[in-house]
Simulated assay, not measured.
Amino acid sequence: MQSYLVGDTPLVPVGRHCILELYDCPTYLLDNPVFIKQALEEAAKVAKSTLLSEVTHHFEPYGVTGLALLAESHISIHTWPEYGYIAVDIFTCGEYAEPEKACKYLVLAFQASSHTLLTLPRGKLSPEIQKRLEDSLVIQ
C-alpha cells in the first residue's frame, strides 16, 4: 500500500530523515563493532521499527561502519574514534516510526558530550513548505 495516491497526491511527507552528529564520544565505544551492533538493534527497537538485518565492518587501524536494514528504511552509523566523532543517518517512513527517539538513545549510548540533529521531512511537500525547507538549508 502506498503512502499516498499517484495522480491525486496530497501534499504530505512520507517519512522523516534524521541526520545526527555526535561529538566527544569515548574512543573505546567507537571502535567496538559488537557494541555498535547492539546499539543499532536497540535504536531500531526504540524507534518502533522492524529490524530486518544488520551488518558491521571494522576498519584498520580503527573505525566502524554499521548498517541496520529496517522494514521502514535504515539506520547507519559511521565512527571516527580518532576524533571522538560519529555520523548517524536514520530514515524511516510510515506514520508509526519514531526516529527522533532513536537519536536520543544513541546520544546517551555513545556518551556524546554534544550533538547536532537535523530532521527533514521526506516526500511530496507543498511548494511553500519545500521553499522554506530549501531556504533553511545551505545547499552547495
Results as ranks from 00 to 15, higher is better:
T56V: 15
K37F: 03
H58S: 13
T9D: 05
C103R: 11
D31H: 02
L40V: 06
S76E: 04
G84A: 04
T119P: 02
R132A: 06
L118C: 10
I36R: 02
V88T: 09
K104F: 10
L120P: 00
A97Q: 04
L133W: 14
F35I: 03
D24T: 05
D135P: 00
P121D: 09
P10L: 04
S113C: 05
D24A: 13
E128G: 00
C93D: 03
Y28F: 15
V12N: 09
S76T: 15
C18G: 03
T116E: 11
E21A: 03
Y96L: 10
K45S: 10
P127C: 06
E95D: 13
V107Y: 11
I36S: 01
T116L: 08
T79S: 11
E95P: 04
S114K: 13
V6K: 15
C103D: 04
A68I: 06
D89Q: 05
K37P: 00
L69D: 07
A102E: 02
L5H: 12
A71N: 10
K45T: 12
L29K: 12
R122K: 13
L51C: 07
H57S: 09
F110D: 06
A97D: 04
R16A: 10
A47Y: 00
A43R: 01
S113G: 14
F59Y: 15
H74D: 07
S73C: 14
L108H: 10
H57I: 09
K101F: 11
F35C: 04
G66C: 05
P121N: 08
S49P: 09
D24N: 10
Y62W: 07
V6S: 10
K104S: 08
L40D: 01
R132I: 03
A68L: 07
L106Y: 06
V6F: 13
P33H: 02
S114T: 11
C18N: 08
D31G: 00
E98K: 15
K104T: 07
E72P: 08
R16K: 15
P121R: 09
E72H: 12
G7N: 09
H17Q: 08
S73Q: 13
A109Q: 12
H74K: 12
Y28K: 12
I139V: 13
L20R: 02
Q38G: 10
C93G: 11
V107E: 05
T116A: 12
G123S: 05
K45E: 01
A47F: 02
V107A: 09
E54S: 15
Q140N: 08
G7P: 10
L22V: 02
P99W: 02
G123C: 04
P99H: 00
D24P: 00
A87H: 15
L52W: 01
S3H: 14
G66F: 01
G94R: 02
P33D: 03
W80D: 01
I86A: 13
Y83M: 12
G94F: 07
A43H: 02
Y28H: 15
V34N: 10
A39Q: 01
L20W: 00
E42I: 05
S113Q: 13
Y28G: 03
S53V: 01
H74Q: 11
G15K: 12
M1Y: 11
V138R: 14
K124N: 09
K37C: 05
A97T: 14
V14R: 15
T116W: 05
